[in-house]
Protein backbone atom coordinates (compact mmCIF):
# COMPACT_ATOMS: atom_id res chain seq x y z
CA UNK A 1 0.00 0.00 0.00
CA UNK A 2 1.31 3.46 -0.88
CA UNK A 3 1.75 5.70 2.12
CA UNK A 4 2.08 9.50 2.23
CA UNK A 5 2.77 12.25 4.73
CA UNK A 6 -0.38 14.24 4.11
CA UNK A 7 -0.65 18.02 4.46
CA UNK A 8 -4.33 18.93 3.93
CA UNK A 9 -3.76 22.68 4.16
CA UNK A 10 -5.81 25.14 6.15
CA UNK A 11 -8.58 25.66 3.63
CA UNK A 12 -9.44 21.96 3.32
CA UNK A 13 -9.61 21.96 7.13
CA UNK A 14 -11.53 25.22 7.18
CA UNK A 15 -13.76 26.77 4.53
CA UNK A 16 -13.52 23.88 2.04
CA UNK A 17 -14.13 20.79 4.20
CA UNK A 18 -15.55 18.99 1.13
CA UNK A 19 -12.01 18.88 -0.28
CA UNK A 20 -10.80 17.09 2.84
CA UNK A 21 -13.58 14.52 2.97
CA UNK A 22 -13.47 13.80 -0.76
CA UNK A 23 -9.69 13.33 -0.59
CA UNK A 24 -10.05 10.79 2.21
CA UNK A 25 -12.84 8.97 0.36
CA UNK A 26 -10.85 8.71 -2.87
CA UNK A 27 -7.66 7.70 -1.06
CA UNK A 28 -9.52 4.91 0.70
CA UNK A 29 -10.89 3.58 -2.60
CA UNK A 30 -7.43 3.70 -4.18
CA UNK A 31 -5.77 2.08 -1.19
CA UNK A 32 -3.62 5.10 -0.38
CA UNK A 33 -2.61 5.43 3.25
CA UNK A 34 -2.56 9.10 4.28
CA UNK A 35 -0.83 10.03 7.52
CA UNK A 36 -2.01 13.53 8.34
CA UNK A 37 0.57 16.01 9.61
CA UNK A 38 -1.49 17.20 12.58
CA UNK A 39 1.31 19.25 14.11
CA UNK A 40 2.32 21.04 10.89
CA UNK A 41 1.83 24.77 10.32
CA UNK A 42 0.21 26.66 7.47
CA UNK A 43 2.61 27.09 4.54
CA UNK A 44 2.22 30.84 4.92
CA UNK A 45 0.77 30.92 1.40
CA UNK A 46 3.25 33.59 0.34
CA UNK A 47 1.47 35.97 2.71
CA UNK A 48 3.62 35.38 5.77
CA UNK A 49 6.60 35.85 3.46
CA UNK A 50 5.26 39.27 2.41
CA UNK A 51 6.74 40.57 5.63
CA UNK A 52 8.70 37.60 6.94
CA UNK A 53 10.20 35.38 4.25
CA UNK A 54 12.61 33.81 6.73
CA UNK A 55 9.83 32.80 9.12
CA UNK A 56 7.86 31.21 6.29
CA UNK A 57 10.91 29.15 5.33
CA UNK A 58 11.31 27.92 8.92
CA UNK A 59 7.68 26.81 9.09
CA UNK A 60 7.97 24.89 5.82
CA UNK A 61 11.35 23.38 6.69
CA UNK A 62 9.64 22.03 9.79
CA UNK A 63 6.82 20.43 7.79
CA UNK A 64 9.26 18.91 5.31
CA UNK A 65 11.46 17.66 8.17
CA UNK A 66 8.41 15.93 9.62
CA UNK A 67 7.85 14.05 6.36
CA UNK A 68 11.53 13.10 6.26
CA UNK A 69 11.33 11.79 9.79
CA UNK A 70 8.38 9.60 8.80
CA UNK A 71 10.33 8.58 5.71
CA UNK A 72 7.26 9.27 3.58
CA UNK A 73 6.72 11.39 0.45
CA UNK A 74 4.91 14.67 1.16
CA UNK A 75 1.49 15.09 -0.42
CA UNK A 76 -0.38 18.41 -0.75
CA UNK A 77 -3.92 18.95 -2.02
CA UNK A 78 -3.64 22.68 -2.73
CA UNK A 79 -1.84 24.38 -5.65
CA UNK A 80 -0.68 27.12 -3.33
CA UNK A 81 0.60 24.70 -0.68
CA UNK A 82 2.57 22.64 -3.20
CA UNK A 83 4.02 25.77 -4.80
CA UNK A 84 5.06 27.27 -1.48
CA UNK A 85 6.46 23.96 -0.22
CA UNK A 86 8.49 23.49 -3.38
CA UNK A 87 9.83 27.05 -3.29
CA UNK A 88 10.96 26.46 0.28
CA UNK A 89 12.55 23.14 -0.73
CA UNK A 90 14.38 24.96 -3.54
CA UNK A 91 15.75 27.67 -1.23
CA UNK A 92 16.70 25.09 1.37
CA UNK A 93 18.96 23.24 -1.01
CA UNK A 94 21.51 25.85 0.01
CA UNK A 95 23.39 24.15 2.85
CA UNK A 96 24.29 27.31 4.75
CA UNK A 97 20.73 28.55 4.69
CA UNK A 98 19.52 25.12 5.83
CA UNK A 99 21.88 25.13 8.80
CA UNK A 100 20.62 28.54 9.83
CA UNK A 101 16.98 27.47 9.52
CA UNK A 102 17.50 24.09 11.20
CA UNK A 103 18.63 25.78 14.31
CA UNK A 104 14.98 26.72 14.97
CA UNK A 105 13.98 23.06 14.70
CA UNK A 106 16.67 21.79 17.07
CA UNK A 107 14.63 22.15 20.30
CA UNK A 108 12.35 19.32 19.11
CA UNK A 109 15.31 17.30 17.94
CA UNK A 110 14.35 17.46 14.27
CA UNK A 111 16.35 18.61 11.30
CA UNK A 112 15.52 19.19 7.64
CA UNK A 113 18.00 17.26 5.53
CA UNK A 114 16.93 18.72 2.21
CA UNK A 115 15.39 15.63 0.63
CA UNK A 116 11.68 16.54 0.41
CA UNK A 117 9.94 16.49 -2.98
CA UNK A 118 6.47 17.86 -2.22
CA UNK A 119 3.84 16.84 -4.74
CA UNK A 120 0.18 17.55 -5.33
CA UNK A 121 -2.43 14.76 -5.19
CA UNK A 122 -3.09 15.49 -8.88
CA UNK A 123 0.50 14.61 -9.81
CA UNK A 124 0.52 11.62 -7.46
CA UNK A 125 -2.59 10.25 -9.18
CA UNK A 126 -0.81 10.37 -12.54
CA UNK A 127 2.73 9.54 -11.39
CA UNK A 128 2.24 6.97 -8.60
CA UNK A 129 -1.27 5.55 -8.88
CA UNK A 130 -1.03 5.54 -12.66
CA UNK A 131 -3.45 5.62 -15.56
CA UNK A 132 -4.07 1.85 -15.60
CA UNK A 133 -5.05 1.67 -11.97
CA UNK A 134 -7.33 4.73 -12.29
CA UNK A 135 -8.92 3.19 -15.38
CA UNK A 136 -9.60 -0.03 -13.52
CA UNK A 137 -11.37 1.89 -10.74
CA UNK A 138 -13.77 3.84 -12.98
CA UNK A 139 -17.35 2.76 -12.41
CA UNK A 140 -19.14 5.66 -14.04
CA UNK A 141 -17.21 7.34 -16.87
CA UNK A 142 -18.01 11.05 -17.05
CA UNK A 143 -18.77 10.94 -20.78
CA UNK A 144 -21.60 13.47 -20.58
CA UNK A 145 -19.43 16.22 -19.10
CA UNK A 146 -17.53 19.09 -20.68
CA UNK A 147 -15.02 20.24 -18.12
CA UNK A 148 -12.78 23.28 -17.98
CA UNK A 149 -9.50 22.89 -16.11
CA UNK A 150 -8.56 25.67 -13.70
CA UNK A 151 -5.03 25.15 -12.42
CA UNK A 152 -4.19 27.92 -9.98
CA UNK A 153 -0.91 29.72 -10.41
CA UNK A 154 1.45 27.76 -8.23
CA UNK A 155 0.93 24.38 -9.84
CA UNK A 156 1.95 25.73 -13.26
CA UNK A 157 4.47 28.48 -12.38
CA UNK A 158 7.38 28.95 -12.03
CA UNK A 159 8.13 25.91 -14.16
CA UNK A 160 11.66 25.49 -12.82
CA UNK A 161 10.44 25.06 -9.24
CA UNK A 162 7.85 22.54 -10.36
CA UNK A 163 10.41 20.47 -12.27
CA UNK A 164 8.41 20.48 -15.50
CA UNK A 165 11.46 19.60 -17.59
CA UNK A 166 11.90 16.29 -15.77
CA UNK A 167 8.14 15.70 -15.60
CA UNK A 168 6.60 17.08 -18.79
CA UNK A 169 3.27 15.40 -18.00
CA UNK A 170 2.78 17.93 -15.21
CA UNK A 171 2.15 20.61 -17.83
CA UNK A 172 -1.30 19.31 -18.67
CA UNK A 173 -2.10 17.12 -15.69
CA UNK A 174 -5.71 18.29 -15.41
CA UNK A 175 -6.47 17.71 -19.07
CA UNK A 176 -5.04 14.22 -18.72
CA UNK A 177 -7.16 13.44 -15.69
CA UNK A 178 -10.31 14.77 -17.37
CA UNK A 179 -9.51 12.58 -20.35
CA UNK A 180 -8.87 9.43 -18.30
CA UNK A 181 -12.16 9.90 -16.46
CA UNK A 182 -13.99 9.96 -19.79
CA UNK A 183 -15.03 13.63 -19.88
CA UNK A 184 -14.22 16.21 -22.56
CA UNK A 185 -11.81 19.07 -21.88
CA UNK A 186 -12.89 22.63 -22.66
CA UNK A 187 -9.78 24.75 -23.10
CA UNK A 188 -9.88 28.52 -22.59
CA UNK A 189 -7.33 31.31 -22.09
CA UNK A 190 -8.02 31.81 -18.40
CA UNK A 191 -7.34 28.24 -17.36
CA UNK A 192 -3.74 28.87 -16.31
CA UNK A 193 -4.25 32.44 -15.17
CA UNK A 194 -4.88 33.81 -11.70
CA UNK A 195 -8.28 33.56 -10.03
CA UNK A 196 -7.62 36.80 -8.14
CA UNK A 197 -8.03 35.33 -4.66
CA UNK A 198 -4.85 36.77 -3.12
CA UNK A 199 -6.12 40.32 -3.57
CA UNK A 200 -9.74 39.64 -2.57
CA UNK A 201 -9.38 41.59 0.65
CA UNK A 202 -7.04 44.24 -0.74
CA UNK A 203 -8.66 44.99 -4.11
CA UNK A 204 -12.01 43.27 -4.38
CA UNK A 205 -12.95 44.76 -7.73
CA UNK A 206 -9.79 43.58 -9.50
CA UNK A 207 -10.00 40.21 -7.79
CA UNK A 208 -13.59 39.52 -8.84
CA UNK A 209 -13.06 40.88 -12.35
CA UNK A 210 -10.39 38.21 -12.78
CA UNK A 211 -12.52 35.40 -11.34
CA UNK A 212 -15.55 36.57 -13.30
CA UNK A 213 -13.85 36.83 -16.66
CA UNK A 214 -12.37 33.32 -16.44
CA UNK A 215 -15.73 31.89 -15.40
CA UNK A 216 -17.51 33.75 -18.17
CA UNK A 217 -15.00 32.61 -20.77
CA UNK A 218 -15.23 28.95 -19.73
CA UNK A 219 -19.02 29.09 -19.54
CA UNK A 220 -19.34 30.62 -22.98
CA UNK A 221 -17.05 27.95 -24.41
CA UNK A 222 -19.51 25.35 -23.21
CA UNK A 223 -18.06 24.09 -19.92
CA UNK A 224 -20.55 22.36 -17.60
CA UNK A 225 -18.20 22.84 -14.67
CA UNK A 226 -14.60 23.68 -13.81
CA UNK A 227 -12.24 21.42 -11.93
CA UNK A 228 -9.44 22.85 -9.79
CA UNK A 229 -6.58 21.49 -7.68
CA UNK A 230 -6.59 24.69 -5.56
CA UNK A 231 -9.10 25.25 -2.73
CA UNK A 232 -8.19 28.95 -2.65
CA UNK A 233 -9.19 29.23 -6.30
CA UNK A 234 -12.33 27.34 -5.31
CA UNK A 235 -13.16 30.05 -2.78
CA UNK A 236 -12.93 32.79 -5.39
CA UNK A 237 -14.59 30.86 -8.20
CA UNK A 238 -17.38 29.20 -6.19
CA UNK A 239 -18.11 31.14 -3.01
CA UNK A 240 -17.56 34.52 -4.69
CA UNK A 241 -19.23 33.61 -8.00
CA UNK A 242 -22.46 35.58 -7.34
CA UNK A 243 -20.44 38.72 -6.55
CA UNK A 244 -18.10 38.13 -9.49
CA UNK A 245 -21.15 37.93 -11.77
CA UNK A 246 -22.27 41.33 -10.51
CA UNK A 247 -18.83 42.90 -10.99
CA UNK A 248 -18.57 41.78 -14.62
CA UNK A 249 -22.31 42.16 -15.21
CA UNK A 250 -22.90 38.68 -16.65
CA UNK A 251 -24.99 35.83 -15.43
CA UNK A 252 -22.79 33.00 -14.20
CA UNK A 253 -23.76 29.54 -13.09
CA UNK A 254 -20.75 27.30 -13.23
CA UNK A 255 -20.15 24.65 -10.55
CA UNK A 256 -16.53 24.30 -9.42
CA UNK A 257 -15.26 20.84 -8.48
CA UNK A 258 -12.20 19.84 -6.51
CA UNK A 259 -9.94 17.23 -8.13
CA UNK A 260 -10.86 14.39 -5.73
CA UNK A 261 -14.58 15.16 -6.14
CA UNK A 262 -14.23 14.55 -9.87
CA UNK A 263 -12.25 11.35 -9.26
CA UNK A 264 -14.84 10.25 -6.72
CA UNK A 265 -17.75 10.80 -9.10
CA UNK A 266 -16.10 8.64 -11.74
CA UNK A 267 -15.32 6.00 -9.12
CA UNK A 268 -18.98 5.84 -8.15
CA UNK A 269 -18.68 7.41 -4.70
CA UNK A 270 -21.83 8.99 -3.26
CA UNK A 271 -21.98 12.75 -4.10
CA UNK A 272 -23.03 13.55 -0.54
CA UNK A 273 -19.90 11.85 0.75
CA UNK A 274 -17.85 13.94 -1.69
CA UNK A 275 -19.36 17.09 -0.24
CA UNK A 276 -20.93 18.07 -3.56
CA UNK A 277 -23.95 19.39 -1.71
CA UNK A 278 -21.81 21.89 0.17
CA UNK A 279 -21.04 24.26 -2.70
CA UNK A 280 -22.29 27.80 -3.14
CA UNK A 281 -22.96 27.22 -6.85
CA UNK A 282 -25.46 24.37 -6.96
CA UNK A 283 -24.11 21.12 -8.42
CA UNK A 284 -27.55 19.52 -8.91
CA UNK A 285 -27.80 20.11 -12.68
CA UNK A 286 -24.38 18.62 -13.10
CA UNK A 287 -25.30 15.54 -11.08
CA UNK A 288 -28.57 15.21 -13.02
CA UNK A 289 -26.61 15.25 -16.24
CA UNK A 290 -24.61 12.33 -14.89
CA UNK A 291 -27.79 10.63 -13.75
CA UNK A 292 -26.85 10.49 -10.09
Amino acid sequence: MSKYAFWPGCVARGAAPELYTSTLAVAEHLGMDLVELEAAACTGAGIISDGEPYLQDVLNARTMAMSEQMDLPLMDICSTCVGVHRLAAEKLRDVDYRIRINHHLAPEGIEYRGSADPRHLLWILLEDVGIDKINSMIKRPLEELNLGPFYGCYIVRPERTLDFDAHPTRRDSLEQLIDILGATTVTYDGMTKCCGFPILTTNKKNSLTMAGSHLDEAQSKGADALVTPCPLCHLNLDAQQPDAAKVIDRSLNLPILHVPQLMGLAMGIDPEKLGLTRHVVDTRNLLNKLGV
Binding site: G14, A15, I48, G51, E52, T202
Partner: peptide, 26 residues
Protein backbone atom coordinates in the same frame (compact mmCIF):
# COMPACT_ATOMS: atom_id res chain seq x y z
CA UNK B 1 -2.70 49.79 4.26
CA UNK B 2 -4.78 46.71 3.40
CA UNK B 3 -1.81 44.68 2.22
CA UNK B 4 0.32 45.10 5.32
CA UNK B 5 -2.67 44.54 7.58
CA UNK B 6 -3.55 41.41 5.63
CA UNK B 7 -0.05 40.07 6.19
CA UNK B 8 -0.16 40.91 9.86
CA UNK B 9 -3.60 39.40 10.41
CA UNK B 10 -2.69 36.24 8.52
CA UNK B 11 0.60 35.74 10.36
CA UNK B 12 -1.07 36.51 13.70
CA UNK B 13 -3.70 33.83 13.04
CA UNK B 14 -1.09 31.26 12.14
CA UNK B 15 0.92 32.10 15.25
CA UNK B 16 -2.13 31.46 17.39
CA UNK B 17 -3.64 28.36 15.81
CA UNK B 18 -0.89 27.10 13.55
CA UNK B 19 -3.32 27.50 10.66
CA UNK B 20 -4.90 30.26 8.64
CA UNK B 21 -8.07 31.75 10.07
CA UNK B 22 -10.04 32.71 6.94
CA UNK B 23 -13.00 33.92 8.92
CA UNK B 24 -10.97 36.59 10.67
CA UNK B 25 -9.07 37.81 7.62
CA UNK B 26 -11.51 40.42 6.31
Amino acid sequence: NHGARHHKGFAGGVRKRGRLDEMMLP
